[in-house]
C-alpha cells in the first residue's frame, strides 16, 4: 500500500512541474508585464523606479532564469505580494481558501446524498415514470446556467420570500451571536451557494450512478445472488451497490476542477468570501501574484484530490493489487 502511494506521488512530480510551467507560461506570454501593472496602479512610479521594479522581478533575465527563480519561491508557497494592497498573495489566498473548501466539501456531500439514492432508484425502476421524470430533471439541471439559477433562487428565497440571506458568509452582527446562533447563521448563508453549486454536478453524478447500477445489475454475480434466494433489496444493497459506487471515488476526484471553476462564478454572485471571488477580483485587477498563486494552488488541490481518490479506490477495490 505504501509503495503504491509512493509510486503515485513520484508519478505526480512531472505533473506538478507541468502545472508550474503552465502557470508561468500564462504569466510570461500575456501582454503587459507586472512592472507595467504596478506602474499603472501608481502614477507616481517614475520611469526610474520602473526599471528598479523590472530588476526586482528579474524581468530582464532570460525566461528560464525567471522561471527558476519563480519556482524556487513557489516551492515555499511565496507567490510575491499582491499588487493591490501589498499583502503576501499566499496569505490572502490562505484567508479565503477555507471558505471555498467548506463550500465545495458541502457541495460534494449534498451531491452524493441526492445523486446516489436518485441514481440507484432510477436504475432499479428503469423506464418507470419516476425514472423518466428524473431523467428530465437531470437534463435540465445539466443545462441550466448556474448564475441564472443563482439569480432566480436569490430573487425567490432572498427578495420575495425573505427566507434566506443572499450574500456573504455571515451576517453583520455575527460577532455578537451565541455559538448556536453563529452555526445557524452560517447555515442560512450557505444554503443557496451550496445548492446552486450542487446543481450541475448532481446531474452528472446521478447519471453515473444510474448507468453504473444498470451495468452492475446485468453482471453474472447478480444471477448467483438471485439464485441463492436473496430478495431484490438484498441483491441491490448487499451485492450491487458497492460495485456500482466504487467508480464514483474516481469521478469525485475528477470533478474537483469543475467545482473550483464553478466557485469563481458562484462566489462572485453570492459575494461569498472565498478563493473564487478573490480570483475573479484579482483577474479583473490583473493582480498577477494572486492569480498565479490561485492557479497553482487550485491545480495542486485537484492533483491532491485525484491522488487521494486513487488511493481510496485502490484500498476499496480488492481487485487492484499494488505492485
Amino acid at each position: 500500500m505504501f509503495t503504491y502511494i509512493f509510486k503515485r506521488l513520484i508519478y505526480s512530480i512531472p505533473i506538478i512541474l507541468g502545472i508550474t510551467v503552465m502557470t508561468f507560461a500564462v504569466m510570461f506570454f500575456t501582454p503587459g508585464n507586472p512592472a507595467d501593472m504596478v506602474a499603472d496602479f501608481n502614477i507616481k512610479v517614475s520611469a526610474e523606479s520602473k526599471e528598479r521594479l523590472i530588476k526586482l522581478y528579474g524581468l530582464d533575465k532570460a525566461w528560464y532564469e525567471q522561471y527558476w527563480n519563480w519556482l524556487k519561491r513557489v516551492v515555499v508557497l511565496d507567490f510575491g505580494n499582491s499588487f493591490r494592497d501589498g499583502k503576501p498573495a499566499s496569505k490572502k489566498i490562505a484567508e479565503r481558501l477555507p471558505a471555498t473548501i467548506l463550500l465545495n466539501v458541502l457541495s460534494i456531500i449534498l451531491m452524493l446524498c441526492i445523486s446516489i439514492p436518485v441514481g440507484v432508484y432510477s436504475a432499479v425502476k428503469k423506464y418507470s415514470l419516476f425514472d423518466r421524470v428524473l431523467t428530465a430533471i437531470v437534463f435540465t439541471c445539466f443545462s441550466v446556467p448556474v448564475f441564472w439559477a443563482a439569480l432566480m433562487l436569490m430573487t425567490v428565497f432572498g427578495l420575495w420570500l425573505g427566507w434566506l440571506p443572499i450574500s456573504g458568509l455571515t451576517s453583520f452582527e455575527f460577532g455578537e451571536f451565541s455559538f448556536f446562533e453563529k452555526i445557524l447563521d452560517l447555515c442560512r448563508h450557505l444554503i443557496l451557494p451550496v445548492f446552486v453549486s450542487t446543481l450541475g454536478s448532481f446531474a452528472v453524478m446521478s447519471r453515473y450512478v444510474r448507468s453504473g447500477m444498470l451495468d452492475v445489475l446485468k453482471q453474472d454475480y447478480i444471477k448467483t445472488a438471485y439464485s441463492k434466494g436473496l430478495s431484490k433489496r438484498q441483491v441491490v444493497f448487499n451485492h450491487a451497490l458497492k460495485n456500482a459506487l466504487l467508480p464514483l471515488i474516481t469521478i469525485i476526484g475528477l470533478s474537483i476542477p469543475g467545482l473550483i471553476g464553478g466557485s469563481f462564478i458562484i462566489e462572485t454572485i453570492f459575494s461569498y468570501p472565498g478563493m473564487g471571488r478573490l480570483g475573479y477580483e484579482a483577474i479583473m485587477a490583473r493582480d498577477y501574484p494572486v492569480i498565479m498563486g490561485i492557479g497553482v494552488i487550485s491545480a495542486f488541490l485537484t492533483l491532491l484530490g485525484n491522488i487521494i481518490a486513487d488511493v481510496l479506490y485502490a484500498s476499496a477495490d480488492p481487485r487492484i493489487r499494488y505492485k
Binding site: 454475480y221 439464485s227 441463492k228 434466494g229 430478495s231 431484490k232 460495485n243 481487485r319
Partner: peptide, 28 residues
Amino acid sequence: SFDDTRKIYGKKISMIFQDPQSYLNPVI
C-alpha cells in the same frame, strides 16, 4: 410472485453456472 419464489431458490432448487470467473462478487 417474485417474493414467494425467494423461498424456493437456493433452498429447493439451486444452480451453478458456466464460467465461474464472473459468478462470484468481486468486492465481497
